[in-house]
Simulated scan of single mutants.
Amino acid sequence: MADLTGSGVCSEDSELLLPESGCAERSWRLNFDGFQRSELKEKPPRGLHDCLGVLATEDVVAEYYQQQVEMLEGFNEMDALADRGFLPGMSKEERERTARSETLAIRLSNIANMLLFAAKVYASIRSGSLAIIASTLDSLLDLLSGFILWFTAFSMQTPNPYQYPIGKKRMQPLGILVFASVMATLGLQIILESARTLISDLALYTIRTWSTTVLENVNSLIGRTAAPEYLQKLTYLCWNHHKAIRHIDTVRAYTFGSHYFVEVDIVLPSDMPLREAHDIGENLQEKLEQLPEIERAFVHLDYEYTHRPEHAQAHS
């Protein structure tokens, strides 16, 4: 591994001036203080490229720099968590006010959907129009989706550590999976029942949209890996966690419902006392679990990194 002790912007003079804090304390950490974000320029008109859906050279370059900007912003967020021990954000009172406002909005939306559904049912009975009946079914599905989301949110807010020791946050993607399956099935039924609906493309769009939703939630339940950019942020946070960390053997994040499970293997000095090593690993676990996307984090401590990866999958 390359020597990273001089990767910061601090000089030897500054370290002599600040021996107890500042540069001397951060000299062992990775940092990007010397990097500056370039100003994003307005894209020129593309004309034919827009019509054909082809990325021009300037678009590829702009996309690359945009990814770099987002990466630096993610590293700054990890620096804040490493220095403060918590993520900056809303206070408890602000979160409670926001939650009450969201609850009120959901209730008002449900009441409006119920009134609209009742009016459409009356209009469907009186007119017998297929268009109005289809609109009535759409309102019924709005009510069904609202009920499923409310039920899953209520279930996640009432934990039961004895029956569900890892929590019930997977209720939300499971509820969406059920509703998306109903929507896809209904779309297929509309295709089979009405040629006019097929010609108008209402049903095909519904099947495609909700089938995509089904696939996305299936991936979240089977343990799909996180994006490389997110793994970069986690690796950055782990390395800057403590100066005693010699190597980072493994950083793994995979979906487990709507959140991530994270596994980290760090290498500490072989002669370090157990108490100190335990505290380093536990503090890193607590930092990782403060990230809103992470449900659980597991930190494995080791004294060398030449062995085979932990929990390696067997190959036939």
Rank of each mutant, 00 (worst) to 15 (best):
M272A: 09
L4E: 03
V218E: 04
L215A: 02
I190F: 06
G47M: 08
A203G: 05
A312W: 07
K169M: 11
V218Q: 07
H278L: 05
D249F: 00
H242G: 04
L198K: 07
Y205G: 13
Y236R: 07
Y162C: 01
A131S: 10
R126I: 09
C23T: 09
A253I: 02
G167K: 09
F298H: 11
I176W: 00
G53S: 05
A123G: 03
K243D: 12
E276D: 11
K43S: 15
L188H: 05
Y164T: 07
C238F: 01
L144T: 04
R196T: 12
L140F: 15
E295A: 13
E286V: 09
L141K: 08
I280S: 07
Y305N: 15
Y236T: 01
D3Y: 02
N283F: 02
R196E: 15
S27E: 12
S211W: 00
H307R: 13
F151C: 09
Q157P: 01
Q66E: 14
R224W: 01
L104E: 11
R37K: 12
W210G: 01
A62I: 00
G257T: 14
N217S: 10
K92F: 05
E42W: 01
I148N: 06
Y303K: 10
C10D: 11
I191W: 01
N110E: 11
R170F: 12
Q66M: 07
M90D: 14
H241V: 06
W210T: 06
L115P: 02
A131W: 01
A226N: 05
I132F: 10
I190D: 05
L221H: 06
L274A: 13
R107L: 15
L284S: 00
N76V: 08
L301A: 01
W210S: 05
N110G: 14
H311L: 13
L274C: 05
E289F: 03
H278S: 03
L48I: 12
T197E: 15
L237P: 00
S14D: 11
E93G: 13
I280T: 10
D265A: 14
T136P: 00
T255R: 05
D138N: 15
A226R: 06
L40R: 15
L87P: 06
R95N: 10
K120N: 09
Y205H: 08
V264K: 04
Q172E: 14
A226K: 07
R46V: 02
N240G: 03
I190P: 00
V9C: 08
L141D: 10
F179I: 05
F151Q: 10
D279C: 07
M71R: 11
G34Q: 08
L72N: 04
G187C: 08
E25F: 06
G53Y: 01
E102V: 06
S200N: 14
S135A: 15
D83C: 06
G47F: 02
A184Y: 02
K168T: 13
A80S: 10
Q36I: 08
T209A: 05
P273Y: 01
A277W: 04
I125W: 14
S211H: 00
L116V: 04
H241I: 04
Q313P: 03
